[in-house]
Design a protein around this nucleic acid. Structure first.
Lengths: 255, 255
DNA sequence: GCAAAAGTGTTTAATTTACACCCATGC
DNA sequence: GCATGGGTGTAAATTAAACACTTTTGC
């Protein structure tokens, strides 16, 4: 990150004067929020964290957690970055801090701004999705300062109660992106423990794609990832209902 | 589109009263703009439309076209949709109207909101990319009301003058998305004429991926798309430097 | 012993990649 | 006639998909 003062070292005096005298125009502005789709895979089931609204509008409905992006027009401090706002919301909502729980996967999905999506005022919302290891889930209920937060199975959500605002649409777009990212990026490793078995990783893939995968074929793909250096063997075995399984680790230093 | 009055038919009187009395909070709000990455393929070269800034900041630099999203807080009219704002900008910038030139491909890329990206004030910008057939390009110069607009070869841009704001970053993210979309979606057809030859389509792929493709192998993939019903033969031949080539058409009615 | 899941192998088809080569046309 | 690029074919390597089978554990 560059310091604010050094951001435009090449600025000429003419421009300097322009900016000193500049006053933001009086055009109406929208509110801007970040909405979070926080996902985890628990018992082979894809789950999303929702909060219940206790104010109008959509009072009583379940909604994605989110909040306003902190902004202002001071030249020396224009507020927080979008990513920072999302990360702040994530930590507030889960009660997990970067220190206590390592890094979180967090990525922008899309921005939603249909007029009328919030009846109170014009709100434009930047949607992010976060992936949380199921090993951290038990910590969340304890730490979260927002009561009325609950994990919902994504599969069951469809036929349960409708979500607030356009959050069903946001969730849908996020799932589509997550499914696409699954093949192209390493997001699956964000949802398994530090070390994991082949079947655990397969479970994550199955949960996100919402369809079963052939264990034998998945294994072959997995072994290929070992050859490519993306995955490496770890020590120990994982006890299962039957034969104990070998555990592996994601090789962060991609070849 | 639903009518505003019917948007929440289920709203209860309690909520109705809440909304009547609701006054938007006094939190600072950012300006929100849309920035457009307008792409075309001309002579096998990927090009982007830029405008020269004639005001501070970044006076004289080249920038992506863009503008403010029109918003307000009236319950009956909260302003225009993000997609609509992008489409309006596109039509203003190119001088092409939907009527005169058919539809345009236009899709959201990502939202950029780093503090300080605009030194005047806090600006959050939703980036879109548009694809324009090269057959329409000649119309653009004539119709565009913005003078100082020019097509730049994307390949050459890197070593030419730097862009205004964070527009180099926006362009980079857009190119990455376009390359990813190329395999998964039918964007290539947005950049060839209504009927096209195999080589013309290959030229588009090569321009976006910035690398040559084997003509024979590309042909096989092309023929497979015919088998799948995505492409169909069209009447006529296209004269070339040598043997005339068969022309095809994109089958909109995907099977 | 038996169920359950780990782990292995086989077969077929489809796809990718790297080529060589023929053929029709404009000049 | 000959260069140019359209159009065709071949062979190896990799990947996807379907499925049968063997092994090791807990109970």
């Amino acid at each position: 990150m560059k310091k604010a003062a050094k951001r435009h070292p090449q600025r000429d005096p003419d421009e300097e004067r322009f900016l000193e005298e500049y006053r933001p125009a009086e055009f109406p502005r929208p509110s801007v929020t970040v909405d979070l789709v926080i996902l985890t895979v628990l018992d082979g089931d894809l789950k999303v964290l929702l909060v219940q609204r206790n104010e109008h509008p959509y009072k009583g409905r379940w909604a994605l957690p989110g909040g306003f992006v902190r902004v202002n027009d001071d030249r020396s401090d224009q507020g927080e970055d979008l990513d920072a706002a999302a990360r702040r919301e994530l930590e507030e909502e889960t009660g997990l801090s970067k220190q206590s729980a390592g890094h979180f996967f967090l990525e922008q999905v899309k921005t939603f701004g249909r007029p009328g999506r919030d009846p109170r005022m014009r709100v434009i919302s930047v949607a992010y999705y976060a992936l949380v290891r199921s090993t951290l889930v038990p910590l969340i209920r304890a730490g979260g300062d927002v009561s009325g937060a609950r994990w919902f199975s994504v599969a069951e959500l469809a036929r349960e109660e409708p979500l607030a605002f356009d959050h069903a649409e946001i969730l849908e777009a996020t799932l589509a992106k997550a499914r696409a990212d699954l093949d192209r990026s390493s997001i699956a490793f964000e949802l398994v423990p530090e070390t994991f078995t082949i079947q655990e990783l397969r479970g994550v893939h199955e949960a996100i794609r919402a369809e079963p995968l052939d264990p034998g074929n998945f294994r072959k793909k997995f072994l290929r990832m070992i050859d490519d250096g993306h995955i490496e063997a770890a020590r120990g075995k994982r006890p299962t209902a039957s034969k104990p399984a070998s555990v592996y680790r994601f090789a962060r230093n991609a070849v």
